[in-house]
Write a protein that binds this DNA or RNA. Structure first.
Lengths: 127, 127
DNA sequence: ATAAACCCTGGAGTTGACTCTATGTCAAGT
DNA sequence: ACTTGACATAGAGTCAACTCCAGGGTTTAT
């Protein structure tokens, strides 16, 4: 697959794909004899995985660490597991914080819906 | 309340508080006769609200828009409501995406836990 | 076979959201 | 009165994560 096909497939710009490869966030992509990238399935799997993790906000630095360890083989298995657990716990916390904010937004929108805003703008802040 | 008290209370740096005020993300804070900030309850309420929304990832630009409309009074009520609904929907989507990623992380961690990684690193990618 | 479209690399530029610095004022304790 | 520490402003700097650009090869469709 060419870079533009992969770009379309995953919704990441070609620049981003090249950037990710350059910084080691995805392993080196195979090239044609003339040097053009020719993505295989493994490359695509990495891209999909990284895209997913990035979209949840995992920092690039951490993901590079993960990819790097992955390539070092079995000796890094337990460190990789720890990394994933740490990131999972952070993500859990973030989701729960965001859920509270979502609830608050729902509450505020209800106030607007029920026309309460005219009587008292300050209700926005009562709890 | 002084800026450092507010800073401690909400866990935002004094620089950030000044920055938020400067860009109009929170309304002008009252000053002492010598020009020092003296936060009142309303200011604190705004800070708490903005901190909450920012922590959920709502962009500063959008929040400035909201604050600005708020200060224009009742004529902006329906526009404010629309803004909140839009942001809520975005947030909902984000939470649901993050939940999927969380599930995926849980799944991966289980693989590591059950010692499956040694047999087949590629299992990482099978769905 | 040649123009249009695509791809390459290396490096500079952008964006959002702070964070820090320089310079100066103000306040509280001794 | 004087030193020490908090606060003020304006503006520059930082950081993460892209995004764009220049200059140059490659592929494809007419």
């Amino acid at each position: 697959m060419t870079i533009s096909e992969v770009s379309k497939k995953f919704g990441l710009s070609a620049d981003t794909l090249r950037y990710y490869e350059r910084i080691g966030l995805i392993p080196h992509v195979p090239r044609s004899q003339s040097g053009l990238r020719d993505y295989d399935e493994e490359s695509c799997n990495w891209i999909e995985f990284i895209k997913c993790m990035r979209s949840a906000g995992l920092p690039i630095e951490i993901l590079i660490e993960y990819v790097t360890m992955f390539r070092q083989g079995d000796s890094t298995i337990s460190a990789r597991k720890e990394l994933l657990i740490e990131q999972r716990d952070i993500l859990r916390q973030k989701i729960s914080d965001m859920q509270s904010t979502l609830d608050r937004l729902d509450y505020k929108i209800n106030l607007y819906e029920s026309g309460m805003m005219k009587q008292c703008e300050n209700k926005l802040f009562k709890k």
